[in-house]
Amino acid sequence: MSAARRVQQWATFGRMWYLYDGKWQNPLESADKIVPYLDGSHKPIFHPLNDSGDHVVVINSRDIALPGDEWEKRVYFHHTGYAGGATWTLAWQLHEADPTMIIRKTVYNKLSKNLLRRGRLARLHIFPDDKVPDSILKNVSAQMRQLRPVPRRLDHYPQEELENFPKIFDWPKDHVIN
């Protein structure tokens, strides 16, 4: 194989590292987006026998947003194997204990159920905030788009923009808004 063909091979089958920002994202929908990247089915060269899954680095997993009342209603079941060893943990409790766990479990549930499942999950790197070790961040060469717009709070806007926003009337001096 010539040098050019060899490099072509590396380029085609090279593993990519994608970054995904979990801030204000629904982990259930995000998992649907992440799973094809982990098992490689987003590539045109995909074949069930070829190992073409990519790495996905999820940041800000502490700031994920479950829909509706899922934080109170969603329950994670665990059994130690001993009698009376069953526990049911609410999503908010699990998230407090480990802010990476909800995304990891969701993705694990959506990966195809075969022997490659654990290996694919091992290519998912989750960080509760945006502090990613340089050894991982240096590999990242692309970023996945978020699924939902991140809402902006009033105190996130710069003061200048707030003052210049068009107003129909001015509040009286003695009017207390908050």
């Binding site: 970054l19 920002d21 961040l137 970023q143 996945m144 788009r145 939902r148």
Partner: peptide, 20 residues
């Protein structure tokens, strides 16, 4: 792919945010 993503600093707000 846009070649610009090669010289971006990650994490990159511009590449991550939803396009309205």
């Amino acid at each position: 792919r846009h070649p610009g993503i090669n010289i971006k600093e990650y994490p990159c707000e511009e590449l991550s945010a939803v396009q309205p």
